[in-house]
Nucleic acid binder design. Structure first.
Lengths: 165, 165
DNA sequence: CAAATATAGATGCATATACATTTATTTCAA
DNA sequence: TTGAAATAAATGTATATGCATCTATATTTG
C-alpha cells in the first residue's frame, strides 16, 4: 500500500501545479484584490465598477444584452445589479415595446460615483501594469483573448462589430 | 453637455476593453465552467477537486498552511471546506501539539471520490488544452506565473522549495 | 385565432470570496 | 509568572457565480 500511497501523492502534487483552472482562479483572486483595494476608497468593487462602466457605455441597455456583452450568466447579472439598484446608482426601467425586457441606466448619482471611482481604477490598473510589466501584460492579454475565443461557442456581439468594421 | 456625454461614453468603452481585472475575471468564468461541467459527473466542483487534491498531496495539513499554499484567504478556505466536511469527504482533526490548529485529511470516502473524479479532471484539462492549443497555453501559463510573482508579497512556500532544489 | 414554443427576467438553492471581528490558545516579555 | 501581543480558526456580513426552475410575455405554428 505504501507504493500506491506514494503514487497517489505524487499525482496529486502534479495536478495541483498543472491545473489550468486552478492557475487562472488563483491569479484572478490576486488581481481582484488589487483592484478592490483601490476601488474601496470609492465605495465600489471592481465587479460593480465594471458593470456601471458598461452601462454607462451603452447609456441604456437591456439586462440580456449586457449579460451577453460581459459573457456573464443572466442570473448572475441580475443578482450583481441588485445592490447597485438598491443603492440608487442604477435604474431598471421596463421596456415600452417588450414588457419582458428591463432597460438599465445609470442614475445621476451613479454617473457621479463612476466619475469619482475612475481615478481609483486608473491607479489600480497603473499599479498592475507597473508590477507585471507593460510588455508582459500585453502578451498575457493576447493569450487571454485567445482563450476567450477558444472557449466561447461563437462570436460575441463585440466581435461581430469588429469583424463588420 | 453633449460633448461631455460623448467623452464619458468613449472613456467607458475604453476601460471595458482594457481593464486587466475584467479580462481575467471573464476568462476565469469561462474556464471554471468548462472544468465544472466535466467534474459535475463526479459530484464535485473544480474548487473542491483542487482542495481535495491538495489535501491528498499533503496527507495531513493544517488549515493555515493549506491557505498559504493555495494563496487563499483563511476564512475562504474554512467556508469552502464546510460542504466537504459535511459530506464526509474531509476530516478536520484538532492538532495534538497546538490546540488552535486543525489538521485536514481525506477520509477513505474522500480519497475514493478523488480517484473517481480524476479522469473527469483529465478530460477537462485535455479539452482545455486542445481548444486553446498546447503552445499558447504554455505561454499564457508562464505569464500567469509572472503575474502571481508580481502581485505576491514574497515567495510562496512552494517557490522556496523549488529555489532550494 | 389558439396552442405550442421561445425568450426575458426573477427566485430557490448551493457554493466561492474576503474583510472585520470574535474566541480560544500560544508565545513573549516585564 | 503573569499580562500583553500574536496566531489559528470560526463567524457576521456582503457580494459573486451559475444551474434549475418559475412567471410573464412574446413569437411561431397548426
Amino acid at each position: 500500500m505504501t507504493t500506491q500511497q506514494n503514487k497517489t501523492t505524487e499525482q496529486a502534487i502534479h495536478i495541483g501545479s498543472s491545473c489550468a483552472c486552478f492557475a487562472v482562479r488563483k491569479m484572478t483572486r490576486a488581481v481582484t484584490q488589487l483592484y478592490d483595494h483601490h476601488l474601496s476608497e470609492a465605495g465600489l468593487r471592481i465587479t460593480q465598477f465594471t458593470l456601471m462602466n458598461a452601462i454607462s457605455g451603452f447609456g441604456q441597455v437591456p439586462v440580456y444584452v449586457l449579460a451577453e456583452e460581459l459573457v456573464m450568466d443572466r442570473t448572475t447579472l441580475t443578482r450583481n445589479l441588485k445592490p447597485l439598484i438598491k443603492a440608487g446608482l442604477v435604474d431598471s426601467i421596463p421596456d415600452e415595446k417588450d414588457a419582458r425586457v428591463r432597460n438599465l441606466s445609470l442614475t445621476p448619482e451613479g454617473a457621479k460615483r463612476l466619475r469619482t471611482a475612475t481615478p481609483h481604477w486608473e491607479r489600480a490598473q497603473a499599479e498592475f501594469v507597473e508590477k507585471v510589466g507593460e510588455k508582459s501584460w500585453a502578451e498575457v492579454s493576447q493569450g487571454i483573448s485567445l482563450i476567450d475565443r477558444a472557449l466561447s461557442n461563437g462570436p460575441r456581439p463585440s466581435d461581430r462589430l469588429i469583424a463588420t468594421g
